[in-house]
Nucleic acid binder design. Sequence first.
DNA 1: ATAATATATGAACGAATGCGCATATGTACA
DNA 2: TGTACATATGCGCATTCGTTCATATATTAT
Lengths: 121, 121
Amino acid sequence: MNYEKSIQDSCSCTIIHEDIINKVKSIMPQEEKLYDLAEFFKVLGDSTRIKIICALLESEMCVCDIAALLCMNQSAISHQLRILKQSRLVKFRKEGKVVYYSLDDEHIKQIFDYGLIHIME
Amino acid sequence: MNYEKSIQDSCSCTIIHEDIINKVKSIMPQEEKLYDLAEFFKVLGDSTRIKIICALLESEMCVCDIAALLCMNQSAISHQLRILKQSRLVKFRKEGKVVYYSLDDEHIKQIFDYGLIHIME
DNA sequence: ATAATATATGAACGAATGCGCATATGTACA
DNA sequence: TGTACATATGCGCATTCGTTCATATATTAT
């Protein structure tokens, strides 16, 4: 039983091109980094959050205004803002009772635009 | 009962800054486009798919090789490749029994890099 | 035609996710 | 101090998602 076979057993798959696998394996970033990257895109992968980000690209807004703009429950917006906050995509400032949210990532606009380019093609 | 109040009723939220809402509303892309954008990022928002894309950034690969590289079931890889195919992120060519997948979007690399910049900060 | 093998796919199941409800927290003002 | 209001949050529910298993499809070789 050779090396390929033993990997086949653990991965239930035959290796056809070991050279390619080794080459690719050598350039793959650390597992954890790719996991974080997926987590980042997951945050962008919800239409409510995308709408919030899109709105904040134009202007800072308070929670109530975002809820009114999107015709959604204040609670739902708060929940999503928490997720955006946790992934450091938005920041906030308090003014009395009112909390104003704004974008906290200068690259969001570009990522947004590349995404739009993709869906247009 | 004024205009703000009536929106408050349907969205269960008071409008504080009507001017901002109107300004933002005027520049928001169509709902459908934002939905598609979220769908696009949702596809990138899974670590298996991110790993596949990352591997294909380096070289085209067949299904078995991807499964072996990621130490995952061939079926799981096939399912994820279908999703990547549907969103036109990968393309494939057949060579006998073997199906080779490769990237089908020239902007993926840049989106990837911007994502990495974000998680590094 | 039959066997072997690479890939695709439907069903099922557990896990994760988004939202609404109820309520808590914090702030302003009477 | 009490009321009003903006926001945050725990819980529960419905839905979606990722994976595995079993099996189907397709291609090659015997």
